[in-house]
Design a protein around this nucleic acid. Structure first.
Lengths: 182, 182
DNA sequence: ATTGAATATGCACTTATTTGCATATAGTTT
DNA sequence: AAACTATATGCAAATAAGTGCATATTCAAT
């Protein structure tokens, strides 16, 4: 996915913010569909401003360095809406772990088992975090605004994604004879 | 994931082959963890040969253009095995559809519904293909070599991945009031 | 004969990403 | 006082990845 679209979606969908804020939003819903370094973000924001998709305003702060707050222009909004209407292909999977599994029988099995256990823990913690957020922010699924529904679905995608990893890890452990988990 | 690792894994795990063959293997198990254009592959193979990770042999063919068969060197194998032992982080998700959902309430709902239905069909077809391959190549899960187990698990990862997408699409359709599927 | 498909390779250009460096303010910790 | 953390921005260089174009052979179809 082009970083342009991710930034536009974030600025339109949340409030106008600085590059620093964008870089931080890896924790929030933005992190479900996009990650990038702050260097990428600053550069991309500058490019987008040159193209007229966003505009910035320098905000002087007393206790912190000044910052540039970016907001989406009408042109930017239109560009985003047009992009949404275009069909989207599934993003290609590039997963290290699967490449390792492809030749996994060439290394001692404990290396693979350890790696599965390590990765499983990472995904489990993420899943737990997502469940907590689900309980906290979306307690009443029946009563939600359109915006909330979409945010909820993105969170649900994170949940199904992590859950499918975990069930696969368990399958792998069972087949490869790894220890039971916890 | 670095394309280097994917190519090495493919050459070690399957048989030595040409860049053209590698590019075609998008259909087979290779496609679960890696996609690239033939241009990328040829360039990367050339680089890897310069580094000594692979070596090539030109094979003259009577009925087709000549081709270069690449095989992994001892150095390449060692490099791959060392890489496998390194821990692997989950690959960052960059999914267009989630960015679109982030601002989905800004466009008419039928655009989103249509896109869900279209994407659902793609994932369903892939899942069907994977199930067929599972029946065909792995009929007896209890009796498998180590190599077969790893191949089976990669296929299973493809299956859990696609299945999690489909269940999410159904959830989205239910919440957004889309038509029942088929 | 010419077009098209499959096999087979690759250069050149462009874009994307990563890494290292650099700067600046202010508060907190040692 | 010096070091560290958090906020805030950005350039430069290197590496990686992606797109467009170009070439060559053979067979099959029109």
């Amino acid at each position: 996915m082009a970083i342009t679209h991710a930034i536009l979606a974030s600025l339109v969908g949340d409030k106008p913010c600085s590059g620093y804020d964008l870089a931080k939003q890896f924790n929030s819903s933005l992190g479900f569909f996009w990650k990038a370094s702050h260097q990428q973000i600053y550069r991309e924001l500058a490019r987008m401003e040159k193209k007229g998709l966003v505009m910035s305003e320098v905000v002087q702060q007393e206790d912190r360095p000044h910052k540039k707050i970016y907001r989406v222009t009408d042109e930017g909004t239109q560009y985003l809406v047009e992009w949404i209407a275009l069909p989207t292909e599934p993003s290609p999977v590039k997963e290290d772990l699967l490449a390792k599994f492809h030749v996994g029988y060439h290394v001692p099995i404990h290396i693979i088992i350890d790696e599965i256990l390590r990765r499983r823990k990472i995904h489990e913690e993420k899943l737990k975090l997502y469940y907590e957020r689900e309980r906290e922010y979306f307690p009443d699924v029946a009563q939600m605004s359109m915006k909330a529904k979409f945010r909820y679905l993105n969170l649900r995608r994170g949940i199904t994604h992590e859950a499918s990893w975990i069930s696969w890890f368990d399958e792998a452990l069972a087949l490869l004879g790894g220890a039971a988990v916890e």
